[in-house]
Design a protein around this nucleic acid. Structure first.
Lengths: 138, 138
DNA sequence: ATTACTGCAAATACTTTGCATACCG
DNA sequence: CGGTATGCAAAGTATTTGCAGTAAT
């Protein structure tokens, strides 16, 4: 299974959702699928602009907004200042370390409600904050 | 029980936590205790500057940062762009309506963990997003 | 007198917008 | 050709910082 094949799969993935599979969009999608570190726009930009020097942050913002609207990614607001993006898999909770700043997945069941107290629920986010395993060791 | 008495209670509340009870701090604390609408810096500023024309946003930022560090308020990042502040009572979940923008309390039990997967947990936030009861009616 | 609180203005950081250019069917 | 994607620069918005003036102990 070469690079061609996997890129074709990504192309198909986007087309199935009515999105034109441009080069940049494919690369951003690939990055999100292979880096489950809840990257920010900044970190995606830093990583991809090495290989794609012409890539702009505007394109990343545009692409992520498009992906959000199609449900391809989730936006995490666990960070006070900047948005983080998570490729959409099964619902799971997130843990943010206040020391090293990383955001980690934790397997903790989310209450999956259709409605609560008369309000229609569309998204559920469970955020934990504290000190991660690695930082505790120091 | 007059206004004097309740202000004295607030003064006592701050002193007990090692905070000098300045006039501005008392007013901001009073606002947070009586307005459980998860206000932003902007909305606190708009509300209080009517009575206190000299009040600046910097002071509100300073005061909220101080209150956060003392555990008097919680910072909610349910909003993508701006921080909301919640007077610290028992843990509870929050619901944000994507139509009207309000953030409401909902009574839903939070998983209160001391640690998970080796990480030390210090804060837990459960955020729901959707369409509120009132907006559904329209 | 010393320390701490306040507030203006400037700086910073993230995100959005306007518009011209480039790409693609 | 015509519509869309891209990217630069500017604008917008939330927050922080530097610093000077003011109040409090």
């Amino acid at each position: 299974m070469g690079e061609e094949t996997s890129m074709n799969k990504l192309r198909e993935y986007l087309e199935k959702r009515g999105i034109q599979p441009s080069f940049h969009r494919l690369k951003i999608l690939e990055y999100l699928m292979t880096h489950r570190t809840h990257p920010t726009v900044e970190s995606i930009y830093k990583a991809l602009s090495k290989d794609i020097p012409t890539l702009s942050k505007t394109t990343i913002y545009n692409t992520l907004k498009l992906f959000l609207s199609k449900g391809i990614v989730w936006g995490l607001t666990i960070d006070e200042n900047e948005m983080r993006y998570d490729f959409n898999t099964e619902p799971h909770a997130h843990f943010k370390c206040v020391k090293c700043g990383r955001v980690l997945d934790v397997s903790l069941e989310l209450p999956l409600l259709e409605s609560i107290e008369g309000h229609k629920v569309m998204e559920t986010h469970l955020y934990l904050k504290g000190i991660c395993k690695d930082c505790l060791k120091r």
